[in-house]
């Protein structure tokens, strides 16, 4: 049984919002609903919170440890886990039956089968996995040519550039998920004091490794993409490494710390310095 989150009010509001009367599970405060005919969403509702994140990690590692035939892949997000599946390869966890459409009353559709599979997994999760969070230090050369918007951020926040750097680099950030682009971390934990709106017009291309602030979020661009975040620095680390088995340097659940480095250190950086 899953423990209720502290944020019970927000949770029930969120449930009310998502409730369609058709797809919620009865046994817990978790919703299970379809994303079309080949994916299912497990939704804890509520707001973005480390507790929910812990449950999401627990479900993902459970699925990794016990691969289910027919499950193609699992995509965690802030408050949901989406499970992609091949409908014709699923087997009912109780009866072992595949989808047959024989017309019998015990026939279960692929959605009903996958719902059974994931609901049982969610029930089986003892509690939030303590999980040993990996700490990843990311060296960042702040300001100058690498952080063209650092000055604007300082002006907007009423801080000095040094203070912005100090605040940004003295925080532990939780990697809630990887998305938007290959290896791009959605980080939680940035102090609101250094929050700044996105740029009014996005840059057509941003260099890989750029560290930015967009609203209340901060992140690192792993590949060259267009983007509207305020750029405050750049890391010499490669966040996306397609030749690795785990191509994203950062993984969901990691703790990120930014460490300021000088331009000379940036220039002299070698891949194996980490």
């Amino acid at each position: 049984m899953i423990k209720k989150t502290d944020n019970k009010t927000a949770d029930s509001i969120a449930r009310g919002r998502h409730m369609s009367g058709l797809y919620e599970t009865d046994e817990s405060d978790v919703l299970v609903l379809p994303l079309g005919d080949r994916a299912i969403v497990v939704d804890w509702g509520g707001s973005i919170h480390p507790d929910t994140h812990g449950k999401i990690r627990a479900l993902c590692s459970q699925m990794e440890r016990n691969p289910v035939p027919g499950i193609v892949e699992v995509v965690p997000a802030y408050t949901t886990v989406t499970v992609f599946y091949e409908p014709l390869k699923l087997r009912d966890p109780v009866t072992g039956d595949q989808w047959s459409r024989s017309g019998g009353k015990d026939d279960r559709s692929p959605f009903e089968i996958i719902k059974r599979i994931v609901s049982r997994m969610v029930m089986g999760l003892e509690s939030v996995e303590a999980g040993s969070s990996r700490i990843v230090e990311i060296p960042v050369c702040y300001g100058g040519e690498f952080g063209p918007d650092l000055h604007d951020v300082a002006v907007h926040t009423g801080l000095s550039a040094e203070e912005v750097i100090k605040i940004h680099a003295s925080q532990d950030y939780l990697v809630y998920m990887i998305g938007f682009a290959p290896g791009f971390p959605y980080l939680g934990g940035m102090p609101e004091r250094i929050a700044v709106p996105r740029r009014s017009s996005p840059r057509p291309t941003i260099d890989p490794g750029s560290v930015g602030i967009g609203g209340k979020q901060t992140g690192v661009y792993p590949i060259a993409t267009p983007g509207g975040w305020q750029l405050i620095g750049r890391t010499p680390l490669k966040l996306f490494r397609p030749d690795h088995a785990a191509p994203s340097l950062l993984q969901m659940g990691d703790i990120v710390r930014f460490r300021p480095i000088a331009p000379e250190q940036y220039a002299a950086w070698k891949e194996d310095d980490i």
Binding site: C60, F84, I178, F180, G183, F184, S248, Q251
Partner: peptide, 10 residues
Amino acid sequence: RFGYQQQGVI
């Protein structure tokens, strides 16, 4: 390319 969406890979 399946199996890498949780790494952000399209």
